[in-house]
Design a protein around this nucleic acid. Sequence first.
DNA 1: TGGGGGCATAAGCTGGTCTTATGAGCGAGA
DNA 2: TCTCGCTCATAAGACCAGCTTATGCCCCCA
Lengths: 306, 306
Amino acid sequence: MSETEERATGGTLAHRVPDLGALELLLAVARLGSLGAAAREVGITQPAASSRIRSMERQLGVALVDRSPRGSRLTDAGALVTDWARRVVEAAEAFDAGTQALRDRRDSRLRVAASMTIAEYLLPGWLLALRAQRPDTAVSLLAGNSAAVAERLLADEADLGFVEGLTVPHGLDSAVIAHDRLIVVVAPAHPWARRRRPLAAAELAATPLILRERGSGTRQVLDTALGGLARPLIELSSTTAVKASAVGGAGPAVLSELVVGEELAMRRLVAIPLEGIALRRDLRAVWPTGHRPTGPARELLSLTRA
Amino acid sequence: MSETEERATGGTLAHRVPDLGALELLLAVARLGSLGAAAREVGITQPAASSRIRSMERQLGVALVDRSPRGSRLTDAGALVTDWARRVVEAAEAFDAGTQALRDRRDSRLRVAASMTIAEYLLPGWLLALRAQRPDTAVSLLAGNSAAVAERLLADEADLGFVEGLTVPHGLDSAVIAHDRLIVVVAPAHPWARRRRPLAAAELAATPLILRERGSGTRQVLDTALGGLARPLIELSSTTAVKASAVGGAGPAVLSELVVGEELAMRRLVAIPLEGIALRRDLRAVWPTGHRPTGPARELLSLTRA
DNA sequence: TGGGGGCATAAGCTGGTCTTATGAGCGAGA
DNA sequence: TCTCGCTCATAAGACCAGCTTATGCCCCCA
């Protein structure tokens, strides 16, 4: 092979994974039971679909569908592949929903301002749901910290805001839409992953942790709950970096459960139960005092309430 | 626009979301801080990278990187987009790891047989971890029910197996690698999502549920724990279908926490606490009695233990 | 005042994916 | 039994996206 480390089978990831169009087509075939029908749904011709599926099978080295003169059904392997494909497509849909909102259209019917964590992890899902209900609502998104969100709302540059944290900025009304729990996580290889009894607050306070920088929302909640200062093992400036560091085994981290859902499910991180302290914070929708959300803003708000 | 419902901005999802190569390139730019360096890493030339990033910005309608004569840094929007992109790429990596294993290579150094749920949700993650440790280990995967897994192992057609369920097939030794909890989930709009007190076993038994067909592992565990038969609202033949049905609001479902991790994090499903009944089942690694796993099988096994 | 790193532009090639046109298997109904 | 209607496959040609090489400009630093 060439200079960098490469897999036995083909070059880069993009060469080994079919493109989104092919994955969508596969999902359509799975749902509709026919290449032709799937082709119609995604807006291509039947021969194109046939060839696309075939070349995907060649690329993966796996037979995905059983063709018959009476339709096409997934093979067992195909069913497995389809479920993996579904997850890729769902991630792409979230990407799409997010970036569409990010496009700066002043004329958007609904302008949302949100804190980073919410913008990153929650909003794409909400936007997908909103799109399902009101396909024509154009949404624009501005992400920033609580102060920036408040500023936008008060300057009438946003219709609805979302913040996490302990306090509500002045001049805004708010409604709690969910509770975010901070949890202690470690890589599966960490000794804590095998402990049986919950972690006591004192123990947590005494242990150096992978943390966001001081001043971040997460850090504030943690310091408050511990009744003192958490001890940093490393300080990083983004949630993503903290997560990566924890997965890599650098040590225990304290993160919102929102951001580690997938890692927990895949067992790349393990949550350690806590005893005697509740690391909760509210997630709030906010709007200028008096201006209750109406129209699409109201709709989005109702979507966000569990 | 044309016949089917389409978004204002462009045709299908694949037209609105950059392809995997572009997303990988963006991640490389974010990490390395330079278009040229990123280009080198993904194995293309600098002009190609420049043009790819530029066309991605045009496609998304958002400026992603600040170019300067001294390098390129992400804009704020770019950082957000990059994190969404990372999730797409991670899903693609899991897809890749899974399908590579699915390729039926008899000469694979490590042949794994696993139950559907484990193959679908857990194995891709493990394989990524294994690949990180031993890049040259070729793995093949066969997915089936417990009986099929046992058969493969006993016929020496697999080196290591994974099953979930209450019993271990005869002729196999096993080690518990994790516990899977079944949880009750409903869509956020369901009345149960707002209840304060945990659900009692009797109440669960009395409520019609979205379930897998009888004979499925999940169903067995549920029936056993309820000390009788669960009442079906609908019976579906795949976990994916059950999940989709629950998200759609058809009613409460009982599912492995493995398969709904993302839906819970995104608040598309809500977990209902249970009282007085533990819907746990063991996830086990299995191998023919006497043949303790060695080599790559042993390595994979150790990766799976939290 | 030259490197050397960074990025952009231009021209030409290549390959993949689409299209249209056609053929062939299977089942249902006249 | 013939034919229609559904399925999928194959073939030939058009088109476009992305790559490469070659070049130029800008900025910083030695």
